[in-house]
Amino acid sequence: MAYSDKVLDHYENPRNVGTLDKNDPNVGTGMVGAPACGDVMKLMIKVNDSGIIEDAKFKTYGCGSAIASSSLVTEWLKGKTVDEAYAIKNSAIAEELALPPVKIHCSVLAEDAIKAAVADIKAKQAAKV
């Protein structure tokens, strides 16, 4: 499998690996995938009171493309509003990383992880009100 330089870069030097405090009311968590499918992505975002994503962390069990996809989106998410984050499309991820067709599902998973994290933070905020 030939990986693009960008995938290799994210794989070798993943950005924003780690976890945030999941009990923090400003932290949303999205976990998607399943071990049996070969990918599990956990994405956490910290949103400030203005609705801006201040921090993003990930952990991924998966192939190089899955790791790169999640690493890339943590970079993209920082500074975006929750709604802007929600609008990120998998095609943009796939294009940026030059994913081959068999690896498109990794970008889909990353998009799903963002949506799940955003849904989590929205649910938390709704509960707060």
């Binding site: 976990m31 049996a36 991924t60």
Partner: peptide
């Protein structure tokens, strides 16, 4: 990097997780 390893270290039984 692995969320599964983290869960394992937290004592979570992965076979009982709803994926």
């Amino acid at each position: 990097l692995s969320p599964l390893w983290e869960m394992f270290k937290d004592g979570i039984d992965l076979s009982k997780v709803q994926w």
